[in-house]
Every structure is written in structure tokens, then in C-alpha cells.
Write a protein that binds this DNA or RNA. Structure first.
Lengths: 227, 227
DNA sequence: TAATAAAGTGAATACTGATTCACACTTAGT
DNA sequence: ACTAAGTGTGAATCAGTATTCACTTTATTA
């Protein structure tokens, strides 16, 4: 059977998608052109009609991930107005991103990619730096409201923000989904916001014994927080 | 020139060390028997006098790392008495471990290793779980002193503890040492201990609403608590 | 419709890396 | 010193994988 002819833009998209999916399943090291070819439904050599090399594929995968990360930041800015809530929402979006595509945590803050050459390492580093920078800005904006302690380094907080999910994501993948990453994210956010909270004023933001609503977090915490 | 005959136990140790060093430099995927052979000073086929396969080498490397991690916990218990200080010290030891051997963060919470087969994945998962468990115990002990808030999940805190360094370690490696991991660890610990600290300004030794179960944290309402 | 570009295919190439094997040297025990 | 086990070596094997190429099939367009 022969694969139906498909325009190169579409195939490029398919190939990038397949590559990301494969990375999610087999890791970056397990990515092979034969694998993506099989996933897409063409023969290995056919890949080279749309990409000059395997390296080029990895590059567009990186770009794709970078776009999605920054897209989340953008989305959060549009959907939510309160800075702290924006961070919370960003965490949930990040979680969703990871859940729907396990390949991402294997690339972001993974290591095999940039282990080799300087070019790709720099690319990934910039990608993460950009994301961290956006997060740090969100933290600064939260501090500007006065409800967040001003004496925390936004940069350090941003790295910690990443640390809220990244190890959990790996545990989640390692345990074949047994590790409850959703619950961890919930707890982690509570602790994180607790950490950022201005200590003097006992705000309603994290009431240790407020009205304890058993809202299930995870999928649908997004709706209707802000008018 | 011929490598001097060396007893297999010594060579096994050398090989494991070399493998860990190589992982630190080239990543797990970049580990090759030729590489370790070269590092040790023998010819590739010579490796097979001491290990049956490359897989077996990776296994002892994992065991070595596991031992060092738990060894740090042990050391902390001996050196320091205050539970919270123990956590602080553990963070610094972990930092040193990473600094002196970059291979460790590439294995712990890396992904290429367990990507393939289930056996190794389980092994790494157990290794991390054990470590996390020890950390969680330290958190519980800190809570028992009363100076640490009882309403945080020790398990979540343990994962976050890992998250304090792991992303930073990767950034550090990626940036060729430009990223100041020491400073980050310092900041991160301040924030982390801040997070765990009993809010003394609010109320004294007892939690505001009496003892709560550690498994259930008072949940933050999803909507509408802000004016 | 004919011509031409685009997309797909299978075989062939080249390289890398793990593993095996027959043989050489070293060391320990008698 | 003799022998046997232990250790080291180089060549060879085997498998996987990226990449190229000549050719075929499909789509576009003049």
C-alpha cells in the first residue's frame, strides 16, 4: 500500500507531531526517523522529502514546544486578571500540556538533547529562559499588587515554579500514571502561594480553616473565576 | 602499551565511576562502552571481563547513586539534630553531590534510562521513591516539633524539595555553569523554609483551627474570595 | 491533454556501537 | 618452575540507523 500524496506543510506538521509523541513514549534518545515514518505512515526515506535531516525535525519540535509554553502565558494573561491567579492558572495549563503530551517534560529540562552540541543546548536554554522570564514577570506583577511579599526573588520563584511540576511530571511518567500529578499540583500550588503570601495580613487567599470546599481540581478549575 | 592487570573488583569500581563521569559529560545516551573503556584505560572488549553487558554497568551506577542519596540522609541525621536544619543541610549536601558529579541529576529524574524497559524504570522509580520517603519523614519530624505547620502534606513537600534543585541543576549544566545554582539554592531554601514555617504572627504554637489531618489540606476555594 | 513538479518507495551506503572470540600476557598457587 | 585462572588485546560479527539515489506514482498547471 502506498501512502497518499500529501502537501509538505501538512506532512511537516504530522512529522513534528509524531516526533513529539514518540519522544513521549520512548524518550529523546529513542527518536528515530524510521519511527516517525512508521507513525506517519510513510517509508523512512520519505521523511527526507519534508525535512533535510533528523536534526531539523528536532528543531521544529523544540519550536513547537516553545510556542506552546509561551502560548500558555499569553492565554493566562487574557483569561485571568489577578497576577497570582494567573500563576495558578498557568500551573494548571502546564499540567494539561504535560498530561496531553508526555513528550514535553522529556524535552524541557531533559538533558540528552543539549548534551551533545552547543547549538541545540543554547536553543533549549533560551527556550526555558524565555519561559522563566515570563513567569518572573508574573511574579513581579503579583508583588506589585502588594498582596505578595516583595522580599522574594522573582527569578528564584520562577525556577521554583518550574520545580513544582517538573519532578512530579517525571514521577508521573515513571510510575505509569500511578503517581497522582494532579493532586500534587494542587498541594504544591497551595504551598507555593502560601510561600508568596504577605505574612502580616491574614488574607483569605489561603485560609487554613476557612470554608472547606471539596472542589476537585485538575480538569475544570478554570471556569468562572473572574468576571 | 598494555593496561596493567587489575583485580575485577577494582576495575568494576573504576568502570562504574567512569560511567558516571561520562554520563555527567555526555548524558546517558552518550554513554558507550568504548567511552568507559577509554576512560579506564583498557580496550572496549576488555570491559566484558568485568561486566556482562552495558546494561549491567548502568545498573551498578544506579545503585551507586541510590547509595549516595541515602547516605546523605544518613549523614544529615548524624550531623544535625534539628529537623528543619537537617533538611537545609540535606539540600546543601545534595547540591555538593550534583556539583561534584554532574552525572547524578542526569540520572535522577532524567528520563532516557527508564524510557525503554520496565525493569529499569521500576528500579529508578523505587530509588527516587525511597529518597522522597526519607525526605518526607524529615518533614514529619519537623512538624512534630511544632515549629512547622502541620497542614502541609509531607509527601508534597518532599517532591517540592526535590524541585528546589533539580530544575536549577539542569539550568546550571545547560548554561555551562553560568547559572548560579548555589545562589538559587540559598534563595530557594529561604522560600521553602518560609513556606513550612508556622505563621507565628497569626497565632502561637497551635494551628489556628486545631489539629488537622495531614492528608487533607484546607482547600483554597476556587472562586470568589477576593473582593 | 501533455509536461512538469511534488511526493512516495525500495535498495544501497556508510557509520556507529555492542558483543564475541581466539589468542597473548600476568599473576597466584602448587 | 609449572600450570591454571584471571585479565588484556585486536579483529570480526551483528544490528540498528541516518542518509542517498534512481525510479515510480500522483498532483498541478499551461
Amino acid at each position: 500500500m502506498r501512502a497518499p500524496n500529501t502537501k509538505t506543510e501538512v506532512r511537516q506538521e504530522q512529522i513534528a507531531q509524531a516526533a513529539l509523541a514518540l519522544i513521549g513514549r520512548n524518550g529523546v534518545a529513542g527518536l528515530s526517523v524510521a519511527g516517525v515514518a512508521n507513525e506517519v505512515g510513510v517509508v523512512p526515506s520519505g521523511i527526507y522529502r519534508h525535512f533535510r535531516s533528523k536534526d531539523e525535525i528536532l528543531d521544529v519540535v523544540l519550536d513547537m514546544i516553545s510556542q506552546r509554553l509561551l502560548g500558555n502565558v499569553q492565554a493566562v494573561r487574557v483569561e485571568v486578571s489577578d497576577p497570582l491567579d494567573r500563576l495558578h492558572r498557568l500551573l494548571l495549563l502546564h499540567l494539561e500540556l504535560i498530561r496531553s503530551n508526555g513528550g514535553i517534560p522529556r524535552v524541557v529540562l531533559s538533558e540528552e538533547i543539549f548534551a551533545g552540541q552547543g547549538r541545540r543546548r543554547l536553543k533549549v536554554y533560551r527556550m526555558i529562559s524565555n519561559y522563566l522570564n515570563e513567569v518572573a514577570i508574573l511574579v513581579r506583577e503579583a508583588q506589585a499588587t502588594g498582596r505578595t511579599r516583595p522580599d522574594v526573588s522573582p527569578d528564584a520563584a520562577a525556577v521554583m515554579f518550574l520545580g513544582l511540576i517538573q519532578p512530579a511530571a517525571i514521577l508521573w511518567m515513571m510510575s505509569d500514571g500511578k503517581f497522582d500529578i494532579g493532586q500534587h499540583a494542587e498541594h504544591a500550588w497551595q504551598l507555593f502561594s502560601l510561600m508568596l503570601a504577605q505574612p502580616e495580613t491574614a488574607r483569605a487567599a489561603t485560609p487554613p480553616c476557612g470554608p472547606q470546599k471539596k472542589t476537585t481540581i485538575g480538569k475544570k478549575g478554570e471556569a468562572g473565576e473572574r468576571p
